[in-house]
Simulated scan of single mutants.
Amino acid sequence: MRDLFTRLNNTGFEVDISTFSKANLHRSQKPFQEIYQKLNELVQNKVHRKLHDKYAICPIDSTIITLTSKLLWVLGHHQVKLFSSLNLATGSPSDNFINFGHDHDYKFGSKMMSNLPTNALGVMDRGFAGLKFIQELVQENKYFVLRIKNNWKLEFEEQTGLIKVGASDNAQAYRVINFCDLETKAE
């Protein structure tokens, strides 16, 4: 929002963000909701035609939001973790939820993946990497791309071409992809 106001001010329209927010305290939110819905429809129609319809690619991530309300501090909440997913085929959020705890992302991966549409491909970072979580995804026939942790033991299986992930005797084999930058020779 600040970026928008800076651009408007640079083009000659004198707008102050605090004046805008004060004015909107007494305005109906309905026109803003209608504008958002209309823009969302336009984006969905254009993006959906361009992307392949076989899989909906859905990045999943979390972010920590510091709470400034002392009312929540009394309850012991100084921050929340916002989990969100964006369906790139439609251009709209697939799922969002807030956790007041300090739990790791992988504990919420199943919830995020279960709310994705059919044939969606969940794309997650290392925070969601957990061997139990990966096993769940495979058992449920979910499509996913997950960046695994650097310290996981990997063992190549020649018969299948898959990689055993983990150090236990019952470690499961998955398709693991790694790549390197040939110029810097960094994996």
Rank of each mutant, 00 (worst) to 15 (best):
M1T: 11
R2A: 14
R2L: 15
R2E: 14
D3M: 14
D3L: 13
L4A: 10
T6W: 13
R7C: 13
L8C: 06
N10R: 13
F13K: 14
E14F: 12
E14R: 10
V15F: 07
S18I: 07
K22N: 14
A23N: 11
N24R: 14
L25N: 10
R27F: 11
Q29I: 12
E34P: 00
Y36K: 10
Q37E: 05
Q37H: 07
N40V: 09
E41P: 00
V43P: 03
Q44V: 07
Q44H: 11
Q44K: 13
N45I: 10
K46E: 04
K46G: 00
V47W: 04
V47H: 03
H48L: 03
H48T: 09
K50W: 08
K50P: 05
L51G: 01
H52M: 13
H52A: 15
D53V: 05
Y55N: 01
Y55V: 00
I57Q: 07
C58L: 01
P59M: 00
D61L: 02
D61M: 01
S62C: 07
T63C: 08
I64A: 12
I64N: 12
I65C: 02
T66W: 14
L67T: 13
L71W: 11
W73L: 12
G76K: 09
Q79D: 15
L82V: 11
L82Q: 03
F83W: 08
S84R: 14
L86I: 10
N87H: 08
A89Y: 15
T90H: 08
G91N: 05
P93S: 14
S94R: 00
I98D: 12
I98Y: 07
G101I: 10
H102A: 15
D103M: 12
D105W: 12
M112Q: 11
M113A: 13
S114R: 06
P117H: 01
A120I: 08
A120C: 11
R126D: 07
G127R: 09
A129H: 04
G130Y: 10
G130T: 05
K132S: 13
F133A: 03
F133C: 02
L137T: 05
L137D: 08
Q139G: 10
F144W: 01
R147S: 01
N150V: 10
N151G: 03
W152G: 04
L154I: 03
E157Q: 11
E158M: 03
E158K: 06
Q159R: 08
T160D: 01
L162T: 04
I163Y: 03
I163L: 07
K164L: 02
S168M: 02
S168D: 04
A171R: 03
A171L: 01
Q172S: 06
R175M: 02
R175L: 06
I177W: 05
N178E: 08
N178A: 10
F179E: 07
K185H: 07
